[in-house]
């Protein structure tokens, strides 16, 4: 590869990397690490723990892709991004994929030239109010002061909702969840609005979670999912099918507990195809035969990742809801592996 002198010097000093050649997957393999964009910290979805290890639901997707491509779920470089920087980071090749609760919208897909590879969490924008306020519906919020966490499509949904119901409000845009929460708890705003999952996560950390209620209205569709750049279809396929593998694994009952046993071969041909004991799906993607096995091996299938990070047993306590398998009445539906 031809390198300019300055760039060469920077690369030597480890401050620059050559990237974004024709195929992202080749770059990732050459680098030995997947650069995955995440939030700067949202409990349950992506946040570093006390030892600096990233964990969360979005992080699980990153690790699964890393395992599928590189065989190691820890071969991920997590790049924290803000609402402002995430798209540039992806477009410029600084990150290979973005798994930062980003809503799949038309304009992001078409105008900004990104490719959403699936939906890992079906969310919707909700409201949280103190119980003492005695509000039972978002339509009672006429004249309220609303704290908004900026960054996703939150501001736009909120404006649309209040406009459609012909009621007024006073927005207070706040950058980080921690600050918005402080404003809300101090009573500087009556309502806190962001994605319902975020609200649940925030409420879980309150001194008295029971004093606050989530209103029944969910005012928007927020399909959150990982995304990659337009134009590299092979890489898009890898991310899409890695995620589908996690969903399919749950559907077929493949868990981290029985993974070794299942991958020895089973009676279900679809499981065999998924885990690479039959057929050549991995080869089609340009990966090893056991790519899906590696992906599932990191933290289990979709349901296990969900339960470990944001499920009902955790302090965030989200129920599966829309995110249940299609068989259980949810929207998680993976195309077949064949």
């Amino acid at each position: 590869m031809k390198k300019t002198l300055i760039l060469g010097a920077l690369t030597l000093a480890g401050l620059a990397a050559t990237a974004a050649s024709a195929a992202t997957v080749d770059d990732v393999k050459a680098r030995g690490k997947l650069n995955c964009g995440v939030t700067t910290g949202l409990v349950g979805f992506a946040a570093p723990d006390a030892n600096g290890v990233w964990e969360g639901f979005d992080v699980g997707v990153c690790r699964a892709v890393a395992a599928a491509v590189l065989g190691d779920g820890n071969a991920v470089e997590f790049v924290p991004t803000t609402g402002k920087t995430r798209f540039t980071a992806l477009a410029s090749g600084e990150i290979d994929m973005l798994a930062r609760n980003t809503t799949w919208t038309f304009s992001r897909d078409v105008d900004l030239k990104f490719e959403f590879t699936g939906v890992n969490y079906y969310d919707g924008q909700g409201f949280m109010v103190p119980k003492a306020l005695g509000v039972s519906s978002a339509k009672d919020l006429d004249g309220a002061t609303v704290c908004i966490q900026t960054g996703t499509t939150t501001e736009l949904n909120l404006a649309d909702f209040f406009r459609a119901n012909n009621i007024s409000y006073e927005p207070v845009p706040i950058e980080t969840n921690a600050e918005a929460q402080q404003q809300y708890l101090a009573g500087a705003c009556d309502v806190y609005t962001t994605d319902a999952s975020g609200l649940a996560a925030t409420r879980a950390t309150f001194e008295a979670p029971g004093d606050h209620v989530l209103l029944p209205e969910i005012i928007s569709k927020e399909p959150l999912g990982p995304l990659v750049r337009h134009g590299d279809n092979n890489w898009g396929d890898i991310v899409r099918w890695t995620f589908n593998a996690l969903v399919t694994a749950e559907e077929l009952g493949v868990t981290s507990a029985n993974l070794a046993e299942m991958s020895a071969g089973s009676n279900n041909p679809e499981i065999n195809r998924l885990l690479g004991t039959e057929g050549n799906l991995g080869e089609m993607l340009g990966l090893s035969a056991d790519w899906a096995k590696n992906a599932i091996g990191v933290a289990g299938n979709y349901g296990e990742i969900f339960d470990a990070n944001i499920g009902e047993a955790t302090s965030i306590g989200l129920s599966r809801g829309l995110n249940a398998q299609w068989k259980d009445g949810g929207l998680m539906y993976s195309p077949p592996f064949r």
Partner: peptide, 18 residues
């Protein structure tokens, strides 16, 4: 953070730190 990476050669990404 959002513009400079467009001014570097397409085949490279330069560290945010730099």
């Amino acid at each position: 953070s959002v513009m400079l990476s467009y001014f570097f050669p397409p085949e490279a990404t330069v560290d945010l730190f730099l």
